[in-house]
C-alpha cells in the first residue's frame, strides 16, 4: 500500500525539519549572545536561599 510509503517519507521529512529547527536556533543563539551570558548559570544559588540550616 502506497500510503505507508508516503508516511515513511513524511517521517523522514519531519525528522529533518526538527533537526534543522534545532540547529538553526542553536547557531542563532550562539551568535547573538556572549558566551559569558550563556554559561552564567551556577549551581546552588537557589539552595543557598531556601535551605534551612541547623547546628
Amino acid at each position: 500500500m502506497a500510503t505507508w510509503n508516503i508516511i515513511e517519507y513524511g517521517a523522514w521529512a519531519l525528522s529533518a525539519l526538527f533537526g534543522v529547527l534545532m540547529i538553526a536556533d542553536w547557531i542563532k543563539t550562539d551568535s547573538t549572545n556572549s558566551e559569558e551570558v550563556l554559561t552564567s548559570s551556577r549551581e546552588g544559588e537557589l539552595e543557598a536561599m531556601s535551605e534551612d540550616r541547623r547546628g
Binding site: A11, L14, S15, F18
Partner: peptide
C-alpha cells in the same frame, strides 16, 4: 525514519 522521528521530535520539545 520512525525511530529517528521519535528522538528528534522529543529532543525538539525539550529544546
Amino acid at each position: 525514519p520512525f525511530i529517528i522521528l521519535v528522538i528528534m521530535f522529543l529532543a525538539w520539545l525539550n529544546y
